[in-house]
Design a protein around this nucleic acid. Structure first.
Lengths: 212, 212
DNA sequence: CGGTCTACTGAACGTGCGGTCAGTCAATCA
DNA sequence: TGATTGACTGACCGCACGTTCAGTAGACCG
């Protein structure tokens, strides 16, 4: 049957609301201090219920992360793989990222936490399997696009992987800053700062390139 | 008495070797999985001995972090506050940072972990008190230097705080990459990539500024 | 050389967590 | 309407960790 049964709908709703609760608690307390008890309370269910939908804490966190990450990737990919000059694509990629994290502020702590392997050895193995490859793949994808932009003469020749790191982590830092600030400047302003600093450089010179 | 007694020397040695063991264990297992038991074993003392020199785990981690951080700051400050063109100072700052983390690879995990508040509420409070201010101070210091470079006409006018974030986190990302790689490219190469990408921009154009 | 002092030890303790599972009860069925 | 199901509960378990402190052994003293 292609149509979902009532039970399946209810089940999906449960899963989603548990994942949302997980993100809220991690956002509030941090990865290490987020307990199953508190996640259950936040989701309005008993602790045992969590184990009906997820094998253990690791799987809950992992699935929650992957879910959000897929959404982020979808948005970024759309901008990154579009047909447009690289500078415009870069602008759109950064803007998409900013928007996503502003709409999903709770996701941020989780995103930051899973970048560094932590926890028990088994947790670390799991992270190595799922989260780090995802992160690496993002870097490599941007590096590929940069490499292509270099051969097309849009970007100066330099190590594309290093440049991708500089770009992604640099803009991450500004995302954090925006989230922490109670009133951040307009989104476009920060996007423009990054794109312009990177494309034109920060050295004081006459504008050598029409920025628009 | 200005000279140290034998007991004081022994005590300082103990403290230092415990802190070194702490860094090694955190580097190996990560912040969350580093237990007092394993730190004691690594230092070659009993678990109880740790509590003769540090009140609790938090204080041990905090003092270890501050100790290493002070060393890093000393080196970076020397380069940052020297009398030289900003570009040269920036080059030296990044090189100093690269060298420090290469010499103190164990420090890296600790450094990354303490950037995001984690753990119990009391741990988070302590981190807010000590580690985060230190990090913020670094950003502000670089932002000040950038601002000054802007008024001197060495750097184009733009939000100096945002630029400081971009720079610090971008270079952090490359530090991580270098540490992870089994054979990293020459240090000067990566330093030059960052400085050149930022100063000249990444847009493909004829060299407009003598880079040497 | 007996007495004292103290740096050090590690077994034991308390706590808080992830994970379990016998029991509950509302919905569904026959 | 009584029987059956299974989603849900939450008290409970075991474990691992940070922390403690009575005990020990070696250095030092008189």
């Amino acid at each position: 049957m292609a149509t979902k049964s009532k039970e399946e709908v209810v089940q999906e709703f449960r899963i989603q609301s548990i994942q949302e609760a997980t993100m809220r608690v991690i956002a509030r307390k941090g990865m290490a201090a987020a307990t199953m008890q508190e996640i259950a309370e936040e989701a309005g269910v008993a602790k045992g219920t969590l184990y009906l939908y997820f094998r253990d804490r690791d799987e809950l966190v992992e699935k929650t992360f992957e879910n959000a990450m897929t959404q982020l990737h979808d948005r970024v990919d759309e901008a990154l793989l579009a047909e447009a000059p690289f500078e415009e694509r870069l602008r759109n990629v950064i803007a998409a990222k900013f928007r996503f994290f502003e709409e999903n502020r709770e996701f941020f702590r989780l995103y930051m936490s899973l970048r560094i392997p932590e926890g028990s050895p088994s947790q670390q193995r799991r992270q190595k399997r799922t989260c780090q490859p995802q992160y690496k793949a993002r870097i490599d994808q941007l590096a590929d696009v940069l490499r292509e932009a270099m051969t097309r003469g849009e970007v100066r020749e330099m190590d594309p992987r290093r440049l991708a790191l500089l770009l992604i982590e640099g803009s991450n830092a500004i995302v954090i800053e925006r989230i922490m600030e109670e009133s951040a400047p307009p989104l476009a302003e920060d996007v423009e700062l990054i794109v312009s600093a990177l494309f034109d450089g920060i050295a004081a010179r006459k504008p050598k390139r029409s920025t628009h």
